[in-house]
Nucleic acid binder design. Structure first.
Lengths: 345, 345
DNA sequence: GTGAAAGCGCTAACAG
DNA sequence: CTGTTAGCGCTTTCAC
C-alpha cells in the first residue's frame, strides 16, 4: 500500500499513465469503460497520488501558509487568533487546500521560516497577519512576490490585497451608542498606536465624539496592549479622570477595565458604561454581560482564504480588498436597558 | 528571482549540479574554493531550492501534520489547544520542519483531510490529539502506517507511541493535598469518561481517597465536559451533596464551579476548597487565584515533535512513550495559607 | 479517446 | 573532491 504509483495503476487497469492521470484529475476525454476500470483499481489498491510529484509537475501545491508575526504570537491568550486560525483552517478544508502554520516568535524563527514561506517553499500563497510598521517579515514576503493576503489592513494598504473589518465605523457606532445613552465623559482604552487596528478603532471613537459635538479630551484616551492587564492599568489611570463611559478596543481589555472599576467600588453600568470589541466566546465566562462589537472572525478567515485563492488563480493585480461588516451587540454593560427583542434606542 | 534552479547556480559557479547540491545540503567532499563560489552565487541570486523537487527526490518533506479531531476542535475556547499548537509550532521551527494544521470538524472534513494526511500526502509524520475510542480518523491514520505520535494517551496505548502527562498521579497529588488540609467530603468534576484524560484524572482522585481511607461516594463525582458551563452545572449538582472540597479536571471547569459556588453564597476556600487542572494563562484573569495542577503544555508540544522526528528517522518500532511531570501550584482557592516560599504542609 | 515522451528540480549512487 | 547518470511520480503537450 505504501508505494503504488500511477504506473502501477495504469498497468493493472490496462491503460496508460496519461489516462490514469486524467481520471484522478477529473478530466474529460476518457471513455467510460477506461474510467471505470481505473476507478476500480484505484479503490481496490487504495492508491493516493504523491503530492510532491504532483506539485513538481503542476507547479501548484494546493497549500497555503498562515503567518502570525512576532507581535501577535504571544496574543495566543486572546481568543482572536485561535478563532481566526479556525476559520482559515475550515476554509482550507473546504477548498481542498492544506494549511501550513507559521508562528514567528523570534528573529531566528523569522530566518528559519522565510525560506519555507515563498513559492519555492511549497506554498501557493500566504495569509499574513498585519503587524506593526516595518516588520521585516512583511517586507521579505512582499519582496518574494508570492500571492499575499493581509489579515487586517496593513500599512501602505494601497499596494496590497487585504481583508479587514470596518474598524472605524464599528467603533464609531459603539461610541455613538454611548452618546445616545447620555454619557458625556466617554473614555477609550485604545489598541497599540503602531497597529492599524489600534489606529482605526481610535479614529472611530474620535469621529463619533466630533460628529456629536462632544469635546475631545486627550486625557480620556489611554493606550492598551490588548491584554487583560493592559486594560486593567489603563482603567486605573482613567478613573482619575472620572469618565462615565469607556469604549475598550477589545473585550479582553474591557474585562481588565471591569476589574479595575469593581476594585474602585464603582458600578457598571451605573457609574461607568462599558463597551468592548470582539464578542468572541471567552473560556472564562464573565459575571456581567458585556456590550460589544461583534466581528465575524470565522467568516473573516474564510474570506481570507477565498481571496487568496482568487489571487493565486487569477493573478495578484490589481490588489483586492474585502471589508466585513460588524454588529453592535447590546447587553448589560452599556446600561441600555432593553426587554426581549426590542432595540433599546 | 522566481525560477532559478540548481542547474543555473551550477552553471554560474562553474561546477556541476551535484556539487551545488552538496553545498546547499551542507555535505562534505566539496573543496573550499568550489563551496565558496557556490555560496556566493546562491547569495547573489537569492536562490532557494524547490521544496517539491527535494521532497520527491529525497522522499522526505520535512513537514509534519497536527491533527485535532472533531471532539476537540470546538475546544478552541479552552486555551489548551492553542498552547499545544504553539509548542508544536515552536519545535517545528527549531527543527526546520513545517507544520501543517488539520482541524477536523465534520465528517466531510475527515474525508477531505485524510488523503493529505498520509505519507503520500506530503507529510513525514503526524501528531494526533488522542480523542474518543473508535474515532474513525484515528483508525485510518493507524492503518496508513505513517509515523504517528499521539498527544495524550490513546486507547489501546500498547501499540502506539504517545506523549502524555501523568494524569493519575497529578490528580492524586491534588486530591491528597485537599485531604491533608483536612477536607473530608471531597468531590470531583471529572472530564468525559470517553477520554483517557477524563478516566485518568478521575482514577487519581479515587486512588487518593482510597489510600487515605476516605469513603468513595459516587454522588460526589460528576462528569463535566471541560467547558465553563459544564463546570458550573456540575457544581450546582454537587452543592446538594454539601462537599467541602472540589477537584476539577480543568481550570475552565473550576472557574465554572467557582461561579456556581459564589451564586450559592458560599465562599472559597472557607466553605469549599477548590483545585483545578492546567494552569494555562487565561485571557480573562480571575478574581480569586486558583490552586491548580500545572502541566507543561509548551514542553509537551516540543517533546511530541521530537518524539515524532525520532520515529521518522529511526523507525516506529517499538512504540515509544514519554510522560511529563506536573506540578501542584498552591494558591488561594485550596485554603492552604502559606507565606513566602514555605510549602504549606 | 489514448499513449508516448518530455520534463518539473532535485538527490544520490557511482565512477573517476 | 567532482561530474555523470538515473531516477523520484506526476502532469502535459503532442501525435495518432
Amino acid at each position: 500500500m505504501a508505494n503504488i504509483t500511477l504506473e502501477d495503476i495504469a498497468r493493472q487497469a490496462g491503460v496508460s499513465r496519461s489516462t490514469v492521470s486524467r481520471v484522478i484529475n477529473d478530466q474529460p476525454n476518457v471513455s467510460d469503460a477506461a474510467r471505470n476500470r481505473v476507478i476500480e483499481v484505484v479503490h481496490r489498491t487504495g492508491y493516493l497520488p504523491n503530492a510532491a510529484a504532483r506539485t513538481l509537475a503542476s507547479q501548484r501545491s494546493l497549500m497555503i501558509g498562515l503567518v502570525l508575526p512576532q507581535t501577535v504570537s504571544s496574543f495566543f491568550a486572546d481568543p482572536y487568533y485561535p478563532h481566526l486560525t479556525q476559520g482559515i483552517a475550515q476554509a482550507c478544508n473546504q477548498k481542498n487546500y492544506t494549511l501550513a502554520l507559521f508562528l514567528v516568535e523570534t528573529k531566528e524563527d523569522e530566518e528559519k521560516i522565510f525560506p519555507r514561506v515563498s513559492r519555492r517553499g511549497l506554498l501557493d500563497g500566504v495569509i499574513v497577519q498585519a503587524s506593526h510598521h516595518g516588520d521585516p517579515m512583511m517586507t521579505k514576503l512582499i519582496d518574494s512576490s508570492i500571492p499575499l493576503v493581509f489579515a487586517g489592513r496593513p500599512f501602505q494598504a494601497n499596494h496590497f490585497s487585504f481583508i479587514d473589518i470596518d474598524n472605524v465605523s464599528a467603533s464609531y457606532n459603539a461610541v455613538n451608542h454611548l452618546i445616545r445613552l447620555g454619557r458625556k465623559r466617554i473614555a477609550t482604552i485604545a489598541g497599540p498606536s503602531h497597529s492599524t487596528v489600534g489606529i482605526d478603532r481610535k479614529a472611530g471613537y474620535v469621529k463619533a465624539l466630533k460628529d456629536r459635538g462632544l469635546e475631545l479630551d486627550e486625557a480620556l484616551i489611554v493606550e492598551g496592549d490588548f491584554t487583560e492587564a493592559g486594560g486593567y492599568y489603563a482603567m486605573q489611570h482613567l478613573l482619575f479622570r472620572k469618565p462615565d463611559a469607556v469604549f475598550a478596543a477589545s473585550d479582553i481589555m474591557a474585562y481588565g477595565a471591569m476589574r479595575a472599576v469593581k476594585q474602585a467600588n464603582l458600578h457598571i453600568p451605573q457609574d461607568i458604561a462599558l463597551i468592548g470589541f470582539d464578542d468572541l466566546p471567552l473560556a472564562n465566562a464573565s459575571q456581567l454581560s458585556l456590550t460589544t462589537v461583534r466581528q465575524p472572525v470565522i467568516k473573516f478567515g474564510v474570506a481570507a482564504v477565498e481571496l487568496l485563492i482568487d489571487l493565486i488563480e487569477n493573478g495578484t493585480e490589481p490588489p483586492r480588498r474585502i471589508i466585513l461588516e460588524t454588529e453592535l451587540i447590546i447587553r448589560e454593560s452599556c446600561g441600555a436597558s432593553y426587554r426581549g427583542l426590542d432595540h433599546p434606542l
